[in-house]
């Protein structure tokens, strides 16, 4: 296995799928000549040409809708949002058109499209550029949503998303783009959507997280083990919709205590749904109320001094975990 970054893993996934299937194209702002705002598509224009790697104007509504139209006709476009925050000006195209056309046509039309890009706070860019809309997307039947947290997951899940016949929203994270880890090299390496991963086994507490919150949770688990002799299981959801409910419930049944961690805002966030799921289906296994840590419930702050407090960090997650044990 090669040791590569999350960014390179995405590039490999895109390159392999573009090579594999002529109906796959990548389009978005600055993806070609500029090599990608976050250099995810570096080298791809040279390799695949301007028919496949396509620079667009700053017109998210038009190019998202264009890609949906092309997908309806059988293409498999990958649309890059420079930030997922920018999907808000293309909301109608994603949430009405991509999500509902199959249903409204009684199943006559598929929309095999991927919308991808970073969806995270923590980079001091203020409220307009720090949205984490995985809950919006997952709230919309017809869409699938994934939040890979490691280079291997980024590659394997993006490849699955491109091959998927339904619209998939791939929510990446700029903070993770430089994360380096082992990634399988074979062309057919894919990871199915809807499958979570136990990234750390434990017996006393389950921390369930997605995206960058997984990495925070792992650090907290280490602290808990080293300083408090608490054995913590960390479950990385990886996929939001479909959701690996079975693995969530088996971890809860095993540890009987749950802490949910996400970098999204709390109201109607992903973890609200997971909390419902656990109390509904594993209530008798709980030895304590479910606890939750999410971003502080205000628009994303710019100042480092504020934003570092806003996003769940090691100490805040640890403090909440300690309430549980």
């Amino acid at each position: 296995m090669a040791l590569i970054t999350y960014r390179e893993a995405l590039n490999q996934a895109l390159s392999e799928e573009i090579k594999r299937d002529k109906s796959v194209v990548l389009m978005g702002e600055e993806v070609a000549q500029f090599k990608g705002s976050y250099k995810v598509s570096e080298g791809m224009l040279e390799k695949f040409g301007s028919d496949r790697i396509i620079d667009t104007p700053i017109s998210e509504a038009a190019f998202s809708g264009l890609a949906v139209g092309a997908a309806m006709m059988g293409m498999r476009p990958v649309v890059e949002f420079m930030f997922w925050s920018f999907c808000y000006v293309a909301f109608d195209q994603i949430f009405n058109n991509a999500a509902s056309i199959r249903y409204m046509s009684g199943g006559l039309i598929n929309v095999p499209i991927v919308f991808r890009g970073p969806a995270n706070g923590g980079t001091n860019v203020g409220a307009t550029h720090s949205h984490t809309p995985e809950n919006f997307a997952a709230n919309t039947p017809g869409l699938k949503v994934i939040c890979p947290s490691t280079p291997a997951d980024a590659k394997g899940m993006l490849k699955s998303a491109i091959r998927d016949n339904d619209p998939v929203c791939v929510m990446e994270n700029t903070i993770l783009y430089n994360l380096r880890d082992e990634v399988p090299e074979e062309d057919d390496f894919t990871i199915p959507l809807g499958k979570s991963k136990v990234v750390r086994e434990g017996n006393d507490l389950s921390i369930i997280a997605h995206g960058n919150a997984v990495h925070t949770s792992i650090l907290v688990a280490q602290t808990l083990e080293e300083k408090y002799q608490v054995s913590v299981e960390v479950l990385d959801l990886r996929s939001i919709r479909p959701l690996d409910t079975e693995s969530i419930l088996s971890s809860v049944r095993k540890t009987n205590r749950v802490l949910l961690v996400e970098e999204n805002k709390p109201f109607c966030g992903i973890d609200a749904q997971i909390c419902f799921l656990i109390q509904d289906q594993a209530f008798d296994y709980l030895d304590a109320p479910i606890k939750r840590v999410s971003a502080i419930d205000v628009p994303q702050a710019y100042s480092k001094a504020l934003e570092s407090v806003q996003i769940p960090d090691h100490d805040r997650v640890l403090a909440k975990a300690l309430e549980l044990i």
Binding site: A61, A62, F63, S64, G65, L66, A67, V68, G69, A70, A71, M72, M73, G74, M75, D92, Q93, N96, N97
Partner: peptide, 13 residues
């Protein structure tokens, strides 16, 4: 809302 979709059809053609 259909105006970008029609564009995508033309693009695909």
């Amino acid at each position: 809302g259909q105006t970008p979709l029609g564009l995508g059809m033309a693009y695909s053609i």
